[in-house]
C-alpha cells in the first residue's frame, strides 16, 4: 500500500487509467482537496477480456474542512472482473466527500463495489455523498453493490444511492426511428452514461479527458 499525505491547504488530483490494480491510502490534512479518477476502460481486445482487477482506495480526513472527490468508471467485456472498494473516513468535522462510481458490464463481466463510509462521533457538519450507477448490457453480466455506512455524528448530511439497470428501450427505438442502427444507438447511450464520469476530470488533466471523450464520440473531425 502506498500512503500519500496531502498537506494542509494543498490540492491533489490524479487520473488512474487502466492500472492493473490500485492500493492507495490518502491522508488529508486540514483544508486539503483530493480528487481521483479510477478508470478501468480497456478497449476490449483479447487480453483484456479476462482481467481481474482489485482497487482499494482509503481516504482519511484528519483535519477540518477537507474535500474529497472519488470518481470511478469500469467498462468491462468478456469475463473481466473489477472490484473497487472505497473506505472514506471523516475523522473530524466540516469536511465534504462525494463519490460517483459507475460500472458498464457486458458479456459475463462482473463488477463489485464496496463503499465504506465512516463519520466519527465528533465529526459534525460533514457532507458525504456516495452514488453507484450500473448498466448491465447482457443477461449474464453481474453487479454486486455493498454500501456500508457508519455514521456516529448527528449533525451531518449523508446520502447514498445505488441503481443497476439496462439500456432505455424507448431511447434505442427513438434513435432507430431516426435511421441510427441499433448497435450505434447502444454505443451512443453507453457513451452518454460513461461521459458523466470522464467529464469530471479537471483542467490539469484536460488532455486525457478530451482524448477519452473523443474516443467515446468516435470523433472524426
Amino acid at each position: 500500500m502506498s500512503e500519500i499525505i496531502i498537506h494542509s491547504g494543498e490540492r491533489f488530483e490524479q487520473v488512474y487509467l487502466n492500472e492493473p490494480g490500485l492500493d492507495l491510502h490518502f491522508v488529508q490534512e486540514a483544508g486539503s482537496t483530493l480528487k481521483i479518477h479510477v478508470l478501468n476502460i480497456p478497449d476490449g481486445t483479447s487480453g483484456d477480456r479476462d482481467i481481474e482487477i482489485s482497487n482499494n482506495i482509503v481516504v482519511e480526513q484528519i483535519g477540518e474542512g477537507c474535500e474529497t472527490e472519488i470518481y470511478a468508471l469500469a467498462h468491462l467485456q468478456g469475463e473481466a472482473h473489477v472490484t473497487t472498494e472505497t473506505h472514506v473516513k471523516h475523522a473530524v468535522g466540516g469536511g465534504k466527500s462525494n463519490q460517483l462510481l459507475k460500472f458498464v458490464l457486458e458479456d459475463q463481466a462482473r463488477g463489485r463495489f464496496i463503499g465504506d463510509l465512516k463519520i466519527a462521533p465528533d465529526a459534525q457538519k460533514v457532507e458525504a455523498h456516495q452514488t453507484n450507477r450500473n448498466l448491465l448490457l447482457s443477461e449474464t453480466a453481474e453487479m454486486r453493490t455493498q454500501p456500508q455506512l457508519e455514521i456516529y455524528a448527528d449533525d451531518v448530511q449523508a446520502t447514498h444511492g445505488a441503481s443497476t439497470g439496462q439500456l432505455d428501450e424507448s431511447a434505442l427505438f427513438y434513435m432507430q426511428q431516426r435511421g441510427i442502427d441499433k448497435e450505434k444507438a447502444r454505443q451512443l447511450l453507453v457513451g452518454a452514461f460513461m461521459k458523466e464520469v470522464i467529464e469530471a476530470i479537471g483542467e490539469q488533466h484536460s488532455a486525457v479527458r478530451e482524448q477519452l471523450l473523443n474516443a467515446i464520440d468516435g470523433v472524426v473531425e
Binding site: Q177, L189, A192, F193
Partner: peptide, 10 residues
C-alpha cells in the same frame, strides 16, 4: 413522436 424521448448525455 407523441412523447419525444429524452436522451441525457447525447
Amino acid at each position: 413522436f407523441q412523447y419525444p424521448v429524452e436522451i441525457p448525455g447525447v
